[in-house]
Design a protein around this nucleic acid. Structure first.
Length: 672
DNA sequence: GCATGATTGATTTTT
DNA sequence: TCAATCATGC
């Protein structure tokens, strides 16, 4: 059955969805039904006879990509396994898997995440006789990233030593057969540049390309799609310059201008009608964003209600803020008969999250936290992953360093130093150095070879076992964890804390279970360890694996909330050093506009009610200092705000109403 | 030479 | 609050 676009979409949306040939630029404001439109557009393409394998849809997060594929499937009632809906990084990975050998990468390459890169950088600093503590590692990584991607030239005051560190870093990556996130974009670009036939292959394969969240693409990401679309010119980009919040990661909303130059025949469509929020919330968002100077003109409007005012809360301190917000959520929940999933607490920085998480746990409120420390970032989980990594790619030094003495196997500082210097001289990985040391009986006699040999044999044994295991690799991993006595190691690390030991070993078991589920999944045509590990490094910060929707209150950073919506949104910590973030604007005063966009994104997540909480004082570096409200609040008209109700006591009628609502909910639960 | 316990220092956002 | 580093003991 054909989809009648104009019956399900508004005029602009329908126009955007039906223009499938030629370049199209869609400026889509927050809550303008952008995702819906994109999905209809893809469904329309399929109906027009374009094959799913010819469509490439790129987005920013794995979650968004997965959702897109699912919605298209629902709309068309067809399988979408051949549709490519992925993040830029996952797409880059795919190209590299298919063609990376041309650049000298073997199929078992490892993807280094930020913490791996930081660890490597420290290693290289040591190697170059520099003190890692004297250097700002994240800042250096950021600089290296800019250099690598060609966004920046070396600053004139940059020492030769730093440049040597950069070279060392690059050399090590190649030696380990490892790539970082930048490489996932840059290496495909290099492939296209050096091997025009490879570019032609992909140009032919993907005849229709769409990019969502275009304002968050980097220059390099744009170049990637621009090249792919250069011949057929069927490129549709969708974005909102007001929601560009990733410039620190290279996002450049001026790509919109580049697109306009590269595709002068483009058609431009603006989606400004908002289907999400009340008039009050939109008015707040519109007036706030007007303070930014560089933007495409647009204003959100709604034909719905103006809704209630924005409530401001003034708790005294963090713990007070947690209590105040939880109390408010409870009372709104019962008064309005909502469920927890209608609520969201948004914060600027990750470290505010645990306080809310714990507070909710104590109050028995189910929570869903994204951001913060994820399952895959727990120490013990990283340890198992490191074991798996070293089996997959023994040259992965960062993985080896993680497990070389975990559990303790009497390989200490001086042995390690010796190994490092051998690896350095021989231009080989640490693992090769270990192999060398253990095999040369007459050399390196001052080293304690026994533990090294044991480790080397262990890895070799399990390596061959792993590759002989087919779809039963998780058993090999489980056996390995048992053989090395990881549980005993935990017991030793956390003496007289059995709970911690159980909890942490539980994580290990959960991880092995996840791995096992993945490899047994019949839909997985490729079930190699490399696939799993590479997937893991791109997905690790995502939501939990199983998608059963639980009714829980969401807690997350503003960045993580992009694209989501909630009935009631609580913005916590809206203070002048948090948002705008003091350190951010100190480093780069121009970032003020981005902080404002961030606040704009936060406000526009709310459908019905918006609460803004500002503590009067906050703990900073163990000292309690007074906090003042964010300057952005003064950019929103006063009359859109209301002060909180005098106290949170419900009056008699409200109490009865709440009680009845509760009864109703219980009855509903019973019957379902 | 390695393991262990004490001290210190540090916190923006994420693929 | 937690992790990485340092100094000391075995």
């Amino acid at each position: 059955m054909a989809i009648q676009l104009h019956t399900v979409l508004n005029t602009e949306q329908s126009r955007a969805a039906s223009l499938i040939d030629g370049p199209v630029l869609i400026i889509a404001g927050a809550g303008s039904g952008k995702t819906r439109m994109i999905c209809y557009r893809m469904a329309h393409m399929l109906e027009m006879g374009i094959h799913a394998s010819e469509i490439l849809a790129l987005t920013f997060t794995n979650k968004a990509a997965a959702e897109m594929a699912m919605r298209v499937k629902d709309l068309t009632q067809r399988p979408v396994s051949e549709l490519t809906a992925s993040t830029f990084h996952a797409f880059g990975l795919r190209i590299l898997r298919e063609q990376g050998e041309l650049l000298g990468y073997t199929h078992n390459f490892t993807i280094y995440d930020t913490s791996d890169c930081a660890a490597l950088l420290k290693e290289v600093l040591h190697e170059e006789q520099l003190d890692p503590q004297a250097h700002d590692i994240p800042a250096m990584l950021h600089l290296f990233s800019n250099i690598k991607i060609g966004r920046m030239a070396w600053p004139s005051d940059c020492s030769a030593a730093i440049k040597a560190v950069y070279d060392g870093y690059q050399e090590h990556m190649k030696l380990y057969n490892a790539v970082d996130f930048d490489d996932l974009i840059m290496l495909p670009l290099r492939l296209f540049e050096r091997y025009p036939h490879v570019l032609a292959l992909y140009q032919k394969r993907y005849t229709h390309i769409m990019v969502d969240e275009f304002q968050d693409t980097s220059l390099e990401q744009y170049r990637l799609v621009q090249q792919l679309a250069a011949v057929h010119r069927n490129l549709c980009v969708v974005g909102d310059d007001d929601q560009s919040i990733y410039s620190w990661r290279g996002a450049n909303y001026q790509n919109i201008i580049l697109f306009e130059t590269d595709f002068p025949e483009r058609i431009e469509i603006k989606l400004e009608q908002n289907y999400r929020s009340t008039g009050t919330i939109l008015q707040a968002a519109n007036t706030l964003i007007l303070h930014n100077t560089q933007r495409k003109e647009k204003a959100l409007w709604t034909d719905g209600h103006s809704g209630g005012r924005i409530t401001r809360l003034y708790p005294e301190q963090e713990d007070d803020e947690v209590q105040t917000i939880i109390k408010e959520i409870r009372s709104v929940l019962y008064a309005r008969n909502l469920s927890y999933r209608s609520f969201c607490i948004l914060v600027r920085t990750n470290h505010l999250i645990p306080a809310f998480e714990n507070g909710c746990m104590l109050e028995q409120i189910p929570v869903q936290v994204s951001g913060g420390q994820s399952f895959f970032e727990r120490k013990e989980v990283k340890d198992v992953i490191a074991y798996l990594r070293i089996l997959a790619n023994p040259d992965d030094d960062m993985a080896l360093l993680r497990i070389i003495n975990t559990p303790r196997r009497k390989i200490g500082r001086s042995t390690l130093a010796a190994l490092r210097s051998i690896a350095y001289q021989r231009h080989c990985s640490l693992y090769s150095a270990i192999g060398l040391v253990t095999q040369q009986t007459d050399l390196y006699e001052h080293l304690r070879k026994e533990p090294l040999k044991n480790l080397y044999d262990l890895i070799e044994t399990y390596r061959s076992a792993l590759f002989a295991a087919g779809r039963k690799k998780s058993r090999v991993l489980r056996a390995l964890m048992e053989e090395i006595g990881y549980k005993e190691y935990l017991a030793q690390e956390y003496p007289n804390n059995d709970q911690a030991v159980l909890f942490r070993y539980g994580s290990i078991q959960s991880f092995i279970r996840l791995f096992s589920q993945w490899e047994q999944d019949g839909d997985n045509l490729s079930y190699s360890v490399y696939d799993y590990l590479q997937r893991l490094s791109l997905h690790s910060r995502d939501q939990k694996e199983d998608g059963d929707p639980i009714d829980a209150l969401s807690i997350m950073t503003i960045h993580a909330s992009k694209g989501l919506e909630f009935d009631c949104v609580f913005l916590a910590g809206v203070e002048d050093h948090m948002i705008p973030h003091a350190r951010t604007i100190e480093e780069n005063p121009g970032a003020l506009e981005e902080e404002r966009r961030l606040f704009y994104v936060a406000i526009t997540r709310a459908k019905q009610d918006l609460y803004i909480s500002t503590c009067t004082q906050r703990k900073r570096n163990r000292e309690v200092v007074p906090s003042v409200p964010s300057r952005f609040l003064s950019e929103i008209p006063e009359d859109l705000f209301q002060e909180p109700a005098q106290d949170f006591q419900l009056d008699k009628d409200e109490t009865i109403a709440a009680f009845n609502a509760l009864k109703r909910r219980l009855a509903e639960k019973e019957s379902s």
